[in-house]
């Protein structure tokens, strides 16, 4: 069983213990094009699953990120503020957005695994 999950809004969450690292998927960064700006949550913020939590902007589009699970934001990737292009270069790695301490692990069950997400993307492209 893999520890990475996906949402319908093209976000990913990598779960290690009770910590989830979140970002947007390769598909999402391709759809957006050159990322020019991100707005990140402050550490300490409590979120409920599906709360708006961050913003990502390209020249022509802006999208919200929604909390994939409930919990407390423990860290944001401040490097993206200076260099949002990292999201284009490595969406699933260096281009992560924030880390969250998951308060309800069972919410992960609402998310997709890689196979389900790949199927979703195949249907959209």
């Amino acid at each position: 069983m893999s520890n990475i999950y996906f949402t319908e809004d093209h976000e990913w969450i990598l779960v290690e213990g009770d910590i989830g690292t979140c970002g947007i998927t390769e598909f999402a960064q391709e759809q957006l094009g050159d990322i020019v700006y991100v707005e990140l949550p402050e550490a300490g913020r409590e979120v409920v699953q599906n709360d708006e939590i961050a913003v990502v902007e390209s020249v022509k589009a802006a999208s919200e990120l929604y909390a994939p699970v409930s919990g407390e934001v423990i860290e944001s990737n401040d490097e993206l503020t200076d260099d949002p292009a990292k999201v284009n270069v490595d969406a699933m790695g260096d281009g992560w957005f924030f880390k969250i301490r998951i308060s309800a692990m069972d919410e992960l069950e609402n998310l997709m695994d890689k196979a389900a997400y790949d199927a979703l993307v195949a249907g959209q492209s």
Partner: peptide, 11 residues
Amino acid sequence: YRRLDETQAAR
């Protein structure tokens, strides 16, 4: 002018 770099302008 040739095409302008809108990405640079926004970043």
